[in-house]
Every structure is written in C-alpha cells, then in structure tokens.
Simulated scan of single mutants.
Amino acid sequence: METMIQPKVTGYRQLNEAEAALMNEIKAHGVQLDELVQKLRATEGLDPRWVSIGATDLQTGLMALTRAVAQPTTF
C-alpha cells in the first residue's frame, strides 16, 4: 500500500488512525442528517423556519464534534 504524505494544515495537528475514523463517522452522520433535513424541507405543512433552525443547530453540533476530535489550535 502506498503511503500518502498528509500536508500540514495550519492550526491542526495530524490525526491518528482512531481519530480519523471518528472524524469519518461524524461526517457519515452528517450525510444522514442532511438527508433527513432535505426530507423535512420537502414535507408540506412543516414550519420551514424551524426546519432551518434545526438544520443550523445540527451543523453546529457536528462542527463541535469535529473540533473535539481535531483539537485545532487556532480560533
């Protein structure tokens, strides 16, 4: 298997294999949640404001989880 050199991203450390797996799991849940949000947006009778608020809060939560794993050193 070819070893790929990971470029250094400013403010982020290199993740180990377990951390990368966690990040991928979080991202996979994000895809599932996006599908749910799209389904809700396509459902008549729902308040679109609350769907949007829910979507934003879910995105915020996923971002917080990824930052918990990545532990960036910058703002």
Rank of each mutant, 00 (worst) to 15 (best):
M1T: 10
M1S: 12
M1K: 08
M1Y: 03
T3W: 10
T3K: 14
M4L: 11
M4W: 06
M4A: 11
I5E: 14
Q6C: 08
Q6Y: 07
P7Y: 06
P7M: 04
P7H: 05
K8L: 09
K8F: 02
T10D: 12
G11E: 05
Y12K: 04
R13Y: 04
R13N: 09
Q14A: 14
Q14W: 00
Q14H: 08
Q14Y: 09
Q14V: 12
L15T: 05
L15P: 03
L15A: 06
E17S: 11
E17L: 10
A18D: 13
E19R: 02
E19K: 05
A20L: 12
A21G: 06
L22M: 14
E25Q: 14
E25D: 13
I26L: 06
I26S: 01
I26M: 05
K27G: 00
K27T: 13
K27C: 00
A28M: 09
H29C: 07
H29I: 09
H29F: 03
G30E: 04
G30V: 02
G30F: 03
G30H: 03
V31K: 13
V31E: 11
Q32T: 09
L33Q: 09
L33G: 04
L33N: 06
E35Y: 03
E35P: 00
L36S: 06
L36G: 07
L36V: 15
Q38W: 02
Q38M: 10
K39P: 01
L40R: 02
L40S: 04
L40C: 08
R41V: 04
R41G: 05
R41D: 08
A42H: 08
A42P: 02
E44F: 00
L46F: 07
L46M: 10
L46H: 05
D47G: 05
D47T: 08
P48C: 04
W50V: 08
W50Q: 12
V51D: 02
V51H: 01
V51I: 11
S52G: 15
S52N: 15
S52W: 00
G54Y: 03
G54C: 07
G54V: 04
T56Q: 12
T56A: 15
T56F: 13
D57H: 12
L58T: 11
Q59F: 05
Q59W: 05
G61P: 01
G61V: 01
G61Q: 08
L62K: 05
L62G: 06
L62N: 03
L62Y: 02
M63L: 13
M63Q: 13
M63N: 14
A64W: 03
L65V: 00
L65C: 07
T66R: 15
T66H: 07
T66G: 11
A68W: 08
A68V: 00
A68S: 13
V69I: 13
V69Y: 01
V69H: 03
V69G: 03
V69W: 01
A70F: 02
Q71N: 10
Q71L: 14
P72W: 06
P72Y: 09
T73N: 08
T73I: 08
T74F: 14
T74E: 14
T74C: 10
F75C: 00
